[in-house]
Design a protein around this nucleic acid. Structure first.
Lengths: 124, 124
DNA sequence: CTAGAATCTCACGTGAACGTCAGATTCAAC
DNA sequence: GTTGAATCTGACGTTCACGTGAGATTCTAG
């Protein structure tokens, strides 16, 4: 498939796909004229890249991890990185849960009779 | 307390504190010479700001939410924002959990006898 | 074969949350 | 009063994951 189709299929921009290739995260075959061509499996791969980006991994980290996913082979360095990122995500989830609870408390408290309805009474 | 002390107490840079003030997130009284001065409670406030930043809230969102925390008053707009951010965090946690599991699977699989030890055998 | 859509390669622009350097000023200690 | 550390106000630099033209080339449909 061509880059526009892949972009549509994966729900990302064409520019993003070129950027992934630039970072070494996504390979492509080229036509005689230089146009990129992808296999069907590329969509899943892009999905995974997006997921890792969303999880806060950098391009470099993803680059180091991707081969492990494709081949199953894990170097000690990659393993260390994997563990470090997993633990970082764990801590991030804790922080998120904490912030979430904070927001939720305010939301719930706002539902209290003494507060609901009228917004900010200047001289009440 | 002075800005350097607050920075040390809250574990952030002096520049960050000035930035928070610039964004309207953190107030300060000034000495005759123009130096910033903070109450003890500022450390907790900075902590909260950091937590919200870490949770992916923008300066603008935090700015809108902070008054609710301090006063307990919640305008309808603020409530909508609070709910939106809470839900966004929920979705983000889901994504993080998914990515985490992905990493964990690789880590665990790497502990398997057929893979442990030797890193990437070029011609094995 | 030709028009037009898609893609190509530069290469600068963006927004967020600060980092960092410069030069001037102020504060705390002696 | 004087020194040296801390703080001040700009203002430009940084990093990341792209956005956004510009201008040229390639593919596809009729």
């Amino acid at each position: 498939m061509r880059i526009g189709e892949l972009a549509a299929a994966a729900g990302v921009s064409v520019r993003a796909l070129r950027y992934y290739e630039e970072q070494g995260l996504l390979a492509s075959r080229r036509s005689a004229g230089g146009h990129r061509h992808y296999p069907e499996s590329a969509a899943d791969q892009v999905w995974l890249i997006q997921q890792f980006y969303a999880a806060g991994l950098s391009s470099k980290a993803i680059l180091a991890i991707m081969p492990c996913i494709e081949t199953g082979e894990v170097t000690p360095e990659a393993l260390a990185l994997l563990v470090a990122e997993r633990d970082r995500i764990d801590r991030q989830v804790e922080g998120l849960a904490s912030a979430r609870d904070r927001l939720d408390t305010i939301i719930t408290t706002a539902g209290t009779p003494s507060c609901t309805g009228h917004p900010y009474r200047p001289a009440g």
